[in-house]
Simulated assay, not measured.
Amino acid sequence: MRTHLVTGAGSGMGAVLARELLGRGDAVVLLARSAARAEELRAQYAGATTLVANLADPVGVERALAGAALPQRLDSLLHVAGVVDLAPVAELDLTDWQRQLDVNLTSPALLTRTLLPALRAARGLVVFVNSGAGLTAHPTWSGYAASKFGLRALADALRGEEGDAGVRVTTVYPGRTATPMQEKVHAQEGKEYDPSQWITPESVASTVLHVLDLPRDATIPDVTVRPGPRG
């Protein structure tokens, strides 16, 4: 039985991954931002265990992890959680900017650092679900893109540092995906949201599972997933 830790399991890609991994009979640990949210996730995913740490509070993440019962072996750490707030640079709000950096970059770095001994023990895999915004920054996307460019750098550095320990690192760059986050983005852009125009969470999750299931003689450092042709 393999063991996986998933962030962002409440909806979208993270929810699909949690269901698929549990359906295989694997052990799954779900990160929850609060004790109440942890209870909801345990009810939603029978057989899963939870770890409480709020990614929006990196200091709290360090404190929570220091006192938690963490897996001794971890086959994968799947970073799926994220937040987005669009604004032009001229109208940047410090709270929104900082929250995106905390949730999308700083806390994933801290979580990865803490779990590296377990990942090394299992010769495990770290997957960072990034974004097309981690490759190209468009107007009004500066805060989110900055966090995702940083996440790309974190993944690249980690890959070079941990290869000799047998830890593989993959970054997945999905295009626009039909998730609650995408619905929020459309609202911020003032556009009508039609989920049928975008990638399904299942398609992105299948890409992550493909990477997870690769034989040990292979690795995919980076993979981009884009919406297919319509009609």
Rank of each mutant, 00 (worst) to 15 (best):
P221Y: 01
G190H: 08
R168C: 03
L135V: 08
S11A: 13
T114V: 15
G8W: 00
P195I: 13
G143M: 11
D75K: 09
D26I: 01
T49Y: 00
H79Q: 13
A205M: 13
V29H: 11
T170P: 09
A178I: 12
L55Q: 12
V103S: 10
G14V: 15
A43R: 15
T170E: 01
R33L: 01
L154N: 04
G12V: 01
A109D: 06
T114N: 06
P229H: 07
R176K: 08
L125R: 13
L55G: 07
E39I: 00
V28F: 01
A27C: 12
T140L: 08
L92T: 13
V225L: 15
L214S: 05
T170L: 05
P108F: 01
R226W: 06
V208S: 15
Q188F: 07
Y193S: 11
G8C: 04
L116A: 08
K191V: 07
A38D: 02
V52Y: 00
L154R: 05
A155K: 07
T171K: 06
P108L: 03
I199A: 12
S196I: 06
L51R: 02
D93Q: 13
R226A: 13
P117A: 05
H210E: 05
H4V: 12
G8T: 06
S203C: 03
L154P: 07
G150A: 09
A146Q: 14
L158Q: 11
P201K: 10
D156S: 08
A121Y: 08
G190Q: 08
E162I: 07
K148S: 09
G150Y: 05
L74F: 10
G12T: 01
V6T: 07
G14R: 04
R176V: 10
S203P: 00
D194N: 14
L86T: 06
M13W: 06
P180G: 03
L21G: 04
L77A: 11
F149G: 11
L74K: 09
L22C: 11
G14L: 12
S107A: 14
S107K: 00
T177S: 05
L77D: 10
L212G: 11
V84A: 12
A153F: 00
L30I: 10
V129K: 03
A109V: 12
G8Y: 01
A48L: 03
E162D: 04
T7L: 04
S206E: 15
M13Q: 13
V103K: 07
V84R: 04
T50S: 10
Q44V: 00
A81P: 04
D96K: 15
V61C: 14
I220D: 02
L110Q: 11
Q182A: 15
P117K: 09
P174M: 09
G175N: 06
R120L: 11
E20T: 15
E183T: 08
H79P: 04
T170N: 05
L209M: 11
R113D: 10
A66S: 14
E39F: 00
A218W: 05
L212C: 13
A118M: 13
V211R: 07
T207K: 12
E20G: 08
A109K: 02
V172T: 07
A56E: 10
V127Q: 04
S76N: 14
P215D: 14
I199E: 13
G160W: 00
L115C: 11
E91M: 12
P221S: 10
W141C: 02
L101N: 05
Q188T: 08
T207S: 14
P227A: 06
R63A: 08
A56I: 02
A133L: 14
R216P: 02
A90F: 07
